[in-house]
Design a protein around this nucleic acid. Structure first.
Length: 768
DNA sequence: ATTTTCTCCATTTTT
DNA sequence: TGGAGAAAAT
């Protein structure tokens, strides 16, 4: 106990030991948020305020959930059995598996990932003869997910025009189709379990009674449906409801584009009448100059809950800023700097190179490759998303739930077995007419097509009966053989990677069975669920079936069903070599939650960061600023920022101005490394700007004035920076005409792109 | 049934 | 510019 609270700062201690009421913890970057969350749980249990079974902890990613669980089991002497720790989707899946009947789902319902969902939608559009030019599948998918994220079923969505009315209609058909197939998409997991709790009073009360403490991480990322789900579970406005402990940082809200609503923080404070708002402002990560930069930048946002990070570490190194002439030169500079950092003793894995959009990584990768430096790019394809792995999964899905049409179509003719598009069309017609699945429609197709389809059905049935008694990994092994997948990839040239990936499914299954305790002979120490005896449903006084909420999943779910959920909900790691000692390349978004000794923030140009499309969105630039805030606060000791004059984008050279965010940083914390870089289009190699002029703050302004006086006059060139009285600073993007007809197309960034008559417009040269 | 050619697109991402 | 996905050609 003493041990537990040892080394917490006063704010952290206050948060950990709050009374059992709903509370909001505003936790700044690097303020020990996860530590507070886990210590709170441990403290509640150790002081006997609640048993592990009374606790639910919700996260957004599996990684966060795993980390929390790992830290908890290190902290607590007892088992974490009965505690519900997981992602929103994972916990909803658990709820729906346990109460599948009440949720009107088949026991073996399967989870569609985004890929599968899109394929269902494409199929649906085709089956209903909808013009996919007018209704692009992606648009419909976005429409459906958006509605579900707001908790709305098709009939609850208001349609304002004929297009929307059609989308609503298609949403309705989509849900019916999913129900027929026994599949649910990600948003459906949440909506279905929300509706389950909302409509089923005994069930709702059961869980409200049970979870005395619900703790939520990254609360600023919750969408409306997630917030309402939490409200329901926590028994908001219910006498004796549980306590909701929400931890978040409004300044790090960067997922509005996927439905996250920062407003949930303020709503929570108001609706739960939060007495205890605690701010964690002590930062344990970054040096002073870095933190000052972050603080000043974010102070430009309005609508903040308000927070200022502080550190006990000194100022540290200044933030270094570099202007490059091109994206290639920027990449080269990064490599030189990274090399010198490494020469000073930095490990490669402690250096991160961040960018706003994925496309920016290419140039950097090329230069890194040429320099022979090892690197890892985050993001990309996950293990369970790979085509060959999805094929294996499709066979397994059909064995568990043959009505999954997506799975059926994926493998009915893979490896090829003479079932062409004509046969499939026939089958789809039959299935559509009867309102049944493709699998069920097979007997309705006559002729040669019918018999090859029947053979496929026999293959699936055979595999199922053969493997009913087998442990999961052996089941997978049989499927690899029986499906012909393994042979197919073995016979493929350059197929070694695929053979490897496909065979790895067996070890993935082995690993899963051990981890989750599904094996009959799983040793008792392996996991809480392994120790449980098979539990029978408990029937409440109302006669409603309430399973023992601690019932191990094996009692409600077959190992295969569980494994398939796992494959959908935990796509696996994208980068196999993660953790290796290599430079870390990633988008700013994926850097959230991570920290590095040294960080490069690249491409800080108007239009790129902040991104131009953010200008169109409500509070878009504020969100970009929060993104920049996240980027800055990743750095512990060294922070570099760079921008370029020219950049290749979509096959065209673009001339950009430096990001407005530079104007929002404290000058005393910055060190400008380069003068205005010698422009490659200028013949004059010996300009005044070859010498470093910008040592920092005040010098900068003086240099700026001198530059304007020294070089105003005609003879404009593309790429040159200019100043206009009304539009401010801009970059010449194009020149047209000559003499008195000469006009310049100028990108003024915030003011947009203007075409100005050079004989009329008063322009000044700018040396930044 | 596979390979080649064309067309389209282009923030950010987890589940 | 370059990658993915679809249509077209062998």
């Amino acid at each position: 106990m003493q041990n537990l609270l040892h080394n917490l700062n006063p704010e952290q201690l206050a948060a950990v030991t709050l009374p059992a009421q709903s509370a909001l913890i505003l936790a700044g970057a690097g303020s020990g948020k996860t530590r507070v969350l886990t210590t709170r749980i441990a403290w509640l249990i150790q002081t006997q305020q609640v048993s592990p079974a009374g606790i639910m902890a919700v996260t957004f990613t599996n990684k966060a959930a795993k980390e929390m669980l790992a830290r908890l089991s290190a902290m607590l002497p007892m088992s974490t059995r009965g505690m519900w720790v997981g992602t929103f989707h994972g916990l909803c899946n658990r709820l729906l598996r346990t109460h599948y009947r009440d949720a009107a789902l088949p026991q073996t319902f399967q989870i569609l990932d985004s890929q599968d969902q899109l394929s269902v939608i494409k199929r649906l559009l085709k089956a209903n003869n909808i013009d996919d030019e007018k209704y692009p599948p992606k648009t419909l998918m976005y429409f459906i997910n958006n509605a579900k994220d707001q908790g709305l079923r098709a009939h609850q969505v208001e349609a304002h025009d004929p297009i929307e009315r059609k989308l609503v209609e298609l949403y309705e058909i989509y849900d019916l189709q999913c129900q027929r197939e026994g599949v649910v998409d990600f948003a459906e997991l949440l909506l279905r379990s929300y509706e389950l709790l909302a409509r089923n009073q005994p069930l709702r009360e059961h869980y409200q009674q049970r979870f005395r403490h619900i703790l939520v991480d990254e609360f600023q990322d919750t969408n409306d449906l997630q917030y309402n789900w939490l409200k329901l579970l926590a028994g908001h406005n219910v006498v004796g409801g549980g306590a909701l402990f929400a931890v978040g940082d409004d300044d790090q809200s960067i997922y509005a584009f996927r439905g996250a609503n920062v407003g949930n923080m303020a709503a929570f404070e108001r609706e739960f009448r939060v007495q205890n708002l605690i701010k964690l402002e002590q930062n344990y990560r970054s040096h002073g100059h870095i933190l000052d930069s972050a603080n000043m930048l974010i102070s430009n946002n309005s609508k903040r809950l308000g927070k200022n990070l502080r550190t006990d570490a000194g100022h540290g190194e200044p933030v270094r800023i570099y202007e490059a002439s091109s994206d290639l030169e920027e990449a080269q500079w990064i490599i030189e700097e990274a090399k010198s950092l490494m020469a000073e003793g930095s490990a490669r894995r402690d250096i991160a190179i961040l960018y706003r959009s994925n496309a920016q990584s290419r140039v950097i990768e090329q230069k890194l490759f040429a320099a022979g430096l090892p690197y890892i790019v985050y993001g990309g394809q996950r293990y369970f998303q790979r085509a060959e792995v999805k094929h294996v999964i499709a066979y397994l899905q059909l064995m568990d739930n043959p009505h999954n049409d997506s799975a059926f179509l994926r493998v009915v003719n893979f490896p090829t077995r003479g079932i062409g598009s004509r046969s499939i069309e026939q089958l789809q017609a039959a299935a559509g007419q009867q309102g049944i699945s493709l699998y069920a429609a097979v007997p309705h197709v006559a002729g040669k097509a019918g018999s090859s389809l029947a053979n496929f059905v026999r293959l699936i049935e055979g595999a199922r009966f053969e493997t009913t008694q087998l442990p999961l990994p052996e089941m997978v092994r049989v499927v690899l053989e029986a499906s012909g997948l393994l042979a197919h990839y073995q016979g493929e040239k350059d197929g070694t990677d695929r053979v490897e990936n496909v065979e790895q499914m067996v070890s993935a299954a082995t690993h899963f069975v051990q981890e989750e305790g599904f094996g009959q002979n799983a040793p008792a120490h392996l996991g809480p669920r392994a120790q449980a005896q098979s539990g029978a449903p408990i029937v409440s006084e109302d006669g409603i079936e309430i399973f023992d909420a601690d019932a191990p999943l094996p009692t409600v779910m077959s190992p295969l069903s569980a494994f398939l959920s796992h494959a959908s909900l935990e796509a696996g790691d994208a980068q196999a070599q993660a953790g290796q000692d290599a430079l870390q390349l990633m988008t700013v978004h994926s850097a959230k939650g991570l920290e590095f000794d040294a960080v490069f923030i690249t491409g800080l140009e108007e239009g790129l960061f902040p991104h131009e499309s953010s200008a169109r969105e409500m509070d878009g630039v504020d969100e970009e600023r929060r993104l920049m805030y996240v980027a800055i606060t990743r750095a512990k000791k060294r922070l570099y920022m760079s921008f370029t004059q020219t950049r290749m984008l979509h096959g065209q050279t673009r001339y950009n101005m430096k990001s407005r965010f530079f104007d929002e940083l404290p000058e005393e914390a910055l060190k400008w490394l380069s003068p205005r870089v010698q422009s490659h289009w200028s013949g004059n190699k010996k300009s005044a700007w070859d010498e470093p002029v910008f040592a920092g703050g005040s010098d900068n302004k003086i240099a700026h004035q001198i530059a304007q006086k020294a070089s105003s006059g005609p003879g404009w060139r593309i790429g040159e920076s200019v100043a206009h009285a009304k539009f401010g600073e801009g970059v010449i993007v194009n020149l047209e005409g000559s003499g008195s007809n000469a006009r310049a197309q100028i990108n003024f960034g915030r003011a947009g792109v203007k075409v100005l008559d050079l004989s009329v417009a008063k322009l000044d040269r700018v040396g930044r």
